[in-house]
């Protein structure tokens, strides 16, 4: 523990700015991945363990699109839309067949998909480390805010993640479609009985959740190394975030992702060796005290 350093940092504007931005950078990308995971769980009631692999797929799709076109915008669209489409196909042809079955069946199907995607990526791209490269637009010196420095690309990344989260939240809570989706989560039979095509909705929601993972992968491609199996660590982290925030709660995912981000950012200064242990401990604590998570609905 080094609380003195922590207090010192908080009392200096430059340190505070840098660390707060670090928390946001770490947290927001995590939020983007987690929101998709949480959305799918909230509406479909299944845990999409392939989410990490989808993130990987998004990164590789963006990598390819960028290499072909040189346009980062196109790379982002390719990563997000490509994975969204893949998600819909996966839901229609695979996942929908194990609805209502044992959670273990779903787990197994996801495990199979992870194996296939990891191997597929290795066959297509090889085992080498890949890096998409920073688009020229962002090749600028870091922006100075009150003596602290924040790289331009990270500002963009955080903004996109926040915007995506906001659109998602508004879409679910303020639109008619969102209402239907919320109803679908609670009583699918009733929604079906009202003449709404629930099959289409399920596929759509799954696709949207996957799209968010793909978008996160595309945003990560310029700054993180692309390797087969890169989805594993992000899956575990977003899993922790989902559990802490509350399964199925987008707002909870946001809160928990920020919590993890700030724990990492300020933990690096105050209690450097304990950050990982703290994450597991937090998860266990939440499970014991309030299994439904910080903002999750109480389990029936």
């Amino acid at each position: 523990m080094n609380l003195e350093a922590l207090v010192d940092c908080l009392s200096s504007a430059s340190c505070a700015v840098t660390q707060v931005s670090t928390g946001l950078i770490v947290g927001m990308l995590l939020f983007l991945v987690t929101s998709g995971l949480s959305l799918i769980f909230g509406v479909l009631g299944i845990i999409n363990f392939t989410h990490g692999a989808f993130y990987m797929l998004g990164a590789y799709l963006a990598f390819t699109a960028y290499a072909l076109s040189g346009s980062f915008l196109l790379a982002m669209v390719a990563g997000a839309a490509g994975v969204g489409l893949f998600g819909i196909l996966f839901e229609r042809f695979v996942m929908s067949r194990v609805y209502g079955r044992d959670i273990l069946m779903q787990l197994l199907v996801c495990y199979a998909m992870i194996l296939i995607l990891d191997d597929g990526v290795k066959i297509l791209y090889g085992g080498e480390y890949r890096m998409m490269g920073m688009p020229d637009v962002f090749a600028l010196p870091p922006v100075e805010i009150a003596g602290g420095f924040v790289p331009g690309y990270y500002l963009f990344m955080v903004a996109v993640a926040l915007a995506a989260g906001l659109v998602l939240w508004l879409g679910i809570n303020r639109t008619r479609l969102g209402k239907i989706v919320r109803a679908l989560a609670i009583n699918p039979q009733m929604v079906g009985a009202l003449g709404i095509n629930t099959t289409l909705l399920y596929a759509g929601v799954f696709g949207l959740g996957s799209l968010l993972a793909g978008l996160a992968g595309a945003l990560a491609a310029p700054i993180r190394t692309l390797t087969p199996g890169m989805g594993v660590s992000i899956l575990i982290e977003s899993f922790i975030v989902t559990v802490i925030g509350g399964m199925g709660s987008i707002a909870g995912a946001f809160l928990a992702a920020l919590l993890i981000g700030f724990t990492r950012a300020f933990g690096a200064i105050g209690f450097p060796l304990f950050v990982d242990g703290l994450m597991f401990a937090l998860m266990a604590l939440v499970l014991v005290v309030k299994p439904s998570g910080l903002l999750g609905r109480e389990a029936a």
Partner: peptide
Amino acid sequence: EHHGLVLGTVILVIVL
């Protein structure tokens, strides 16, 4: 060496 691909496919076939 592509056992992931093979194993994954086998699981999918069995489960589905």
